[in-house]
Amino acid sequence: MQTLQRRIEAGDYPPGTLLPSENQLIQEFGVSRPTVVAALRMLREQGWIDSQQGKGRFVRGRPALASLEQSRPGHAYLTSAETPSAELLEVGAVALPNRIAALLDLPPKSKAFLRRRLVSRGDEPSEIVSLWLPLDLSEGTNLTSAEPLAQGIREHIQARKGVRFDHVIEQITARMPTSDEVKQLGMPKNTPVLDVYAAVRDPGGRPLAVLAVVLPADRHELEDAYPIG
């Protein structure tokens, strides 16, 4: 999907032209038909292309709302370097919570790699960011180091492990904080938190990682934008 977006922006596929067929994209990228169909559906929903029954998919161009895609929490934590001011709370192999196990398609209570940091904005704790990985993906990386990553998580893991981050499925839920979260975030115990779960998958849909971000609800506002055409 990102490659097609870049080609549209570069003018390789000008507005009004016919996009390559599903079969052509399957052959070029070496992925399954469901993956191609899902990418094309997302491009259509975001306003990059339009579908005409019996004719194919036509390029519309870069949508006006495309720049707002970068504001999604999961994307920001995957692509940005770690802030030096963040405090490392926990790192190592730990038992998986049920929800994270389901998102990684691993057995409940099995072990996975966890890197958890407390991020501050200004002088105030802002969020708790937890990166969960299958153990084999954490080996040979710098994720066990107490030093902050100088590059984004996505870039680091892809370079070290040869995997490809293709898409993210993001879920947001609300709940009351745990006693540890109240203490770490310096927040009232009766204030809810938002849980942002960003499940990262490869082009074939295989789970690669999960980012779980805990946000005090009184300090954050999440915004999204999408076309209605």
Rank of each mutant, 00 (worst) to 15 (best):
A81W: 03
L114A: 03
V129T: 08
Q151S: 11
L118V: 12
E127Y: 02
P63F: 04
T144K: 14
A76N: 08
F58Y: 15
P73A: 09
L104G: 02
A146K: 14
A76L: 15
P73K: 11
L135V: 12
L106T: 09
R121H: 09
L135P: 01
R154L: 02
L137K: 12
S80K: 15
K55Q: 14
S126R: 07
D105I: 14
S145E: 09
L149F: 00
S110W: 03
E127C: 11
S130D: 10
I100P: 01
W132M: 04
R62A: 06
A81Q: 07
A86L: 06
H75L: 15
L88R: 15
L143M: 13
G140A: 09
F58K: 12
E127T: 11
L135C: 04
S67F: 08
E82Q: 15
L143D: 00
L149C: 02
R99F: 00
L103W: 02
S51R: 15
Q52F: 06
K109F: 00
G152S: 05
E127R: 14
Y77H: 14
P125S: 07
S85R: 15
V94G: 01
L68W: 12
Q52R: 14
V119Q: 03
F113K: 08
A146H: 08
L65V: 14
N98D: 07
S71G: 06
E147S: 12
L114M: 08
L143T: 07
S51F: 13
L78T: 04
F113A: 01
A102Q: 15
G152C: 03
D136P: 02
A112F: 00
D136L: 13
K111C: 01
P73R: 08
V94T: 13
G122D: 07
P148K: 07
A112V: 10
S130P: 04
Q53L: 12
V129S: 04
A66W: 04
E139Y: 07
G61C: 09
G140S: 08
A81S: 09
A150Q: 11
P148S: 05
L96H: 03
Y77W: 15
T83H: 00
G92L: 10
E90T: 12
Q151E: 10
P108L: 06
A150N: 08
D105Q: 15
I128R: 02
L96M: 06
K109M: 09
P84L: 13
G56P: 08
K109I: 05
V94L: 13
